[in-house]
Design a binder for these strands. Structure first.
Lengths: 337, 337
DNA sequence: ATGAAAGCGCTAACAG
DNA sequence: CTGTTAGCGCTTTCAT
């Protein structure tokens, strides 16, 4: 079962009594061609709604105009707003620029879907939605010399290996946000996070540290607890910190934040009265939470579009920004001011 | 910027001193070839890790081994578990069977991403994740004679137009589930839903009606309210129904159900004491809700895999089931028994 | 059982 | 400015 064949460049050329080359040139705009014939060709193409065959073009140009987007398979089980938003933005942006996006699901070590997609040369490049300290996929791409872009910065050891490394100003944002929320009170503060293997969390922590330094808050007195990956571990950690007198909780992501709120409320603490909470990542959920949570906002879709755009420009041998850096918004709400 | 060229079938043929034809045959298994030479070729291919170029293969065969997956753009703003789960399952299944999946985002009338993907013949077929009463995309596909598969049944007017129309036994499930939850009490019941334009909702309603008929519950006394697309409309409807004496709420999907629970609790009603709730669609959220909600479970990933598998078999001219029908599970929990 | 040759539909030197 | 020609890497008759 195959799709019925459609017009070819030859059909157009024959109808017009010109050569295929002329038609090809009229379409691509490359090479000399008179305005008159170009228009004649354009008209004929429109009339018949002729569209060049992508496979033939790919073969001739050694380019597919396809991108692979690597998504973590965790996404299946649980919604990850960042992944969902960036995926859509990338599909949109790629489409605008004439590219298609293929999805390759991966779990840590198993990137067989991506590998095969690369082996068969079905894509011109790859976009990674996460960056981690030791990334087998990034290494694969580097080893095979495949152009790739990342959402989020790569670890230092892979510096310069990606064609495009788009990021939000995580450090600057977390620095400014930390200063804003910490300045008001001297209550003891802790930072709660999950996986420091994610580069984004490393950057966020650096921003926080810089703020502490500037505010002369000694780091020894500000516990930093990672590995909070479920409600139980969150409860344990938070209760221990409460016993130590901690009253302000800076959460490195929205999930940790939601859990922390749950635990604090479960312990009968009122927010922001008895304890304060803030998040280094914002979501609708945090905005409509009770009380609304102060958070740092990064526009995921904007990041994705920038990365995709610059990457495609690079693939097209046009000028591009290899390190687009996007801003942030500080959103002070009731949970911590 | 292009990926560096790799080995071609010619390189392999030359190294082995055979013709390209032979190598091609050894790979595809088509045509006569001695076991001996096949093994020689295989060995050489493995040794050099040769992989045929997809573009060249596509051009020669007029097949891309790509599928387009059409996703609703609503998915960007809000997580839709069904979409997320089916997307992943389709990517996985397609990969297993040698295909890649391209994402095409669409909003009702605007399916330009899909159109261009089809125009350029970048895919062999299309998978639709939703079926609605008047579907411009389905019509486009039918008009252009593009093979497509659907998750969920098509409306009767498009009968037989899809190559594969995979569905859960919505009617049977909702019938059995309705009987199970309605049998216990004579309290007045209402059905709450959102958009009857979705075929799935039509089927669910039919199942419910059939159960009512069998239980001899007059339909005049069981209000059916659609158009519940946010908390506000839900509140309005539910409060009106409460005033009419309705105490049992059958919700056609998980979102409507969550809203209904919120409204009922907001009105100070205890569940299942004062009012009962059940859902024709299950999610983790409903399972962990307070109280846990009785719901009908359909395995979205299983549906997606079946649709994808049968569709690809059809594309490969193998035997296939054009209407896979999958089962359901009744999950009685505390909210209504 | 194997190979030679044509062709899939397009691009890109090279000529003119 | 336009056409001729030779590929791109693979499949597929048709011979042998």
């Amino acid at each position: 079962m195959t799709i019925k064949p459609s017009l070819t460049i030859d059909d157009i050329a024959r109808e017009l009594g010109v050569s295929k080359t002329t038609v090809s040139r009229a379409i691509s705009g490359k090479g000399r061609i008179s305005a008159a014939t170009r228009e004649r060709v354009q008209a004929c193409i429109e009339k018949h709604n002729y569209k060049p065959n992508a496979s033939a073009k790919s073969l001739a140009e050694s380019r597919t105009y396809n991108l692979a987007l690597v998504l973590p398979r965790d996404f299946v089980k649980l919604d990850i707003p960042f992944v969902r938003q960036t995926m859509s933005a990338i599909c949109d942006e790629a489409f605008l620029l004439g590219y298609n996006v293929m999805i390759c699901l991966s779990v840590g070590d198993d990137s067989s879907a991506l590998v095969r997609t690369l082996d068969y040369r079905k894509v011109d490049g790859v976009i990674l939605t996460r960056t981690v300290e030791d990334d087998p996929i990034a290494e694969l791409l580097i080893r095979r010399d495949i152009p790739f872009a990342t959402l989020g910065s790569l670890p230092a050891k892979y510096a310069g290996k990606a064609i495009v490394e788009a990021d939000h100003d995580q450090l600057g944002g977390c620095y400014a946000f930390s200063k804003a929320v910490l300045a008001g009170s001297r209550a003891q503060t802790a930072v709660l996070g999950n996986d420091l293997n994610y580069i984004v969390n490393q950057s966020r922590l650096s921003g926080f540290r810089k703020a502490c330094q500037e505010l002369e808050i000694p780091m020894e007195q500000t516990p930093i607890r990672m590995g909070i990956n479920d409600l139980e571990s969150c409860r344990e950690t938070v209760e221990e910190l409460l016993a130590l007198g901690v009253r302000r909780f800076l959460c490195m992501d929205e999930d940790v934040c939601t859990r922390t709120m749950t635990v604090l409320k479960g312990n009968g603490l009122s927010i922001p009265g008895d304890a304060q909470v803030a998040s280094f990542a914002d979501t609708d959920q945090l905005k409509t939470a009770v009380p609304p949570v102060s958070a740092l906002y990064f526009d995921a879709a904007e990041l994705a579009r920038a990365a995709c755009r610059e990457f495609i420009q690079a693939l097209n041998d046009e000028e591009y920004d290899s390190k687009p850096l996007l801003g942030y918004k500080i959103r002070l709400r009731q949970s911590m001011i």
